[in-house]
């Protein structure tokens, strides 16, 4: 892939947890030397946001039904640290598989 992967991070209000998750993903992307663009939003706006951001993957800290179009990951491990490494591995594995 020759462009930055777009990650859409969502929570209920787009205030607290999506902000946190976004920061952690950006830091990890830097560590792994992967270029990403992280966008934030509310899960209620998922459809609109997916269209406007053209996101490649979604990380949500609120319940979001699985989708056919893009992979969805539960972002709660980014808040507690529990299972965080595994989640990062899954996220960046999914990014590596993205085609242009």
């Amino acid at each position: 892939m020759n462009r930055a992967a777009v990650i859409l991070v969502m929570c209920g209000s787009s205030i607290a947890t999506s902000t946190l998750a976004a920061v952690k993903i950006e830091e990890e992307a830097k560590r792994r030397n992967v270029s990403v663009v992280v966008k934030k939003g509310k899960v209620a706006d998922a459809d609109v946001l997916l269209q406007s951001t053209k996101a490649d993957i979604i990380v949500a800290t609120a319940v979001l039904p699985p989708r056919d179009d893009v992979p969805v990951f539960n972002g709660v491990p980014l808040l507690t640290g529990i299972g965080q490494k595994e989640l990062f591995d899954q996220i960046f594995e999914a990014i590596a598989k993205i085609k242009d």
Partner: peptide, 15 residues
Amino acid sequence: ISDPDDHVAFLSALA
């Protein structure tokens, strides 16, 4: 929180 972008450091510290 009034503006999440103003409080990134706080939220990270809280996490």
